[in-house]
């Protein structure tokens, strides 16, 4: 058995379904994660993210459908997949009563890291996450951020091709979050690793992910790059401050332009909400306004992932 080399997709999910009694947690979910990308799974609590991760990692058997990781069926080639997989579960799964070095040493044995390389690799990983000085401290004495960093070091110890990160910055402070983001970005940039992460933080997904899948009620709701998603599902708001009040005729003319969803006029302020390809539309709007009146100031607010997320998944509270 050896760590697999993969040139195809890192993960292929084909109509993956998981039912718990009458409740369908994941419903015919299909997805492809390309090798070398950082892919984000976004969804509200209880949307099925962790269930999907558990099925991809073989910790939960799908009710139906198939999950292939690095070209291998996770059910049939479990150990081959595990050898190439690094995982940071939400709860970190560290032995908190033991020290950092021992945690990594146990992992090294479980993953078959050769004894001659073990100490060097552990040292390298602890240095990478800046915990080498604390190598003999019990993990229970670490902060949340330090534990996450140690869990990341552990996941990287056996040099995996693919990393699962389940809520990698949950409950960590801003400094630690930035540090973890940098490690994750470096994994892709310097080592070409594939990263699949779940997160509740839209800012995190925006900063890290090449592509994002938004899921809700166990189904894929949207898929694309952050820019794509904003373009497809987000609204850009252009705010135009004019020298004098805009006529109702101009407002009406603007509101019927294709791509303009709303025009609000208040004194000398004109707010135009645009959806779709806003680049050409922006030019048209400015031309029409300047034909009637002088423009003093223009500002444009980009759509953000949070608005898109809420518009796709609803704003109701989730358990």
């Amino acid at each position: 058995m050896k760590q697999t080399e993969n040139t195809g997709p890192a993960i292929e999910l084909n109509r993956l379904t998981k039912r718990f009694g009458d409740f369908t947690a994941v419903d015919g979910f299909s997805l492809t994660v390309r090798s070398g990308e950082i892919f984000g799974l976004l969804g509200p609590n209880g949307s099925g993210k962790t269930t999907i991760i558990n099925m991809i990692s073989g910790l939960s058997k799908p009710t139906s459908g198939e999950a292939k990781v690095l070209g291998h069926n996770i059910i049939h080639d479990t150990r081959v997949v595990y050898a190439a997989l690094g995982s940071v579960p939400q709860e970190t799964a560290l032995y908190e009563e033991l020290d950092a070095w021992t945690n990594l040493s146990i992992h090294a044995t479980l993953y078959g890291v050769h004894r001659s390389e073990r100490d060097r690799k552990i040292t390298d990983m602890l240095n990478l996450v800046q915990l080498y000085e604390r190598r003999h401290s019990r993990v229970s004495s670490f902060s949340g951020g330090m534990k996450r960093r140690l869990a990341l070091a552990r996941a990287l110890l056996h040099d995996p091709l693919l990393l699962y990160l389940d809520e990698p910055t949950l409950g960590v402070d801003v400094q630690s979050r930035r540090a973890i983001w940098n490690y994750i970005l470096d994994l892709k940039k310097k080592e070409g690793k594939t990263v699949l992460l779940t997160t509740n933080y839209l800012e995190e997904a925006n900063a890290l992910c090449d592509r994002i899948a938004i899921i809700d009620h166990g189904k894929l709701v949207a898929l694309g790059t952050p820019i794509d998603l904003k373009r497809r599902y987000g609204d850009t708001v252009m705010e135009i401050e004019t020298a004098s009040s805009v006529s109702p005729q101009l407002s009406a003319k603007l509101s019927i332009l294709p791509g303009v969803s709303e025009v609000i006029q208040k004194d000398k302020i004109l707010k135009v909400t645009m959806s779709g390809d806003e680049l050409s539309l922006t030019g048209q709007l400015i031309t029409l306004v300047t034909q009637e009146i002088n423009i003093k100031k223009i500002s444009q607010r980009e759509p953000n992932l949070e608005e898109i997320f809420l518009s796709l998944t609803g704003s109701g509270l989730r358990d």
Binding site: Y82, Y95, H107, L110
Partner: peptide
């Protein structure tokens, strides 16, 4: 247990 279950051991 996740650490153990996910290990290729």
């Amino acid at each position: 247990i996740k650490e153990l279950m996910l290990a290729p051991a």
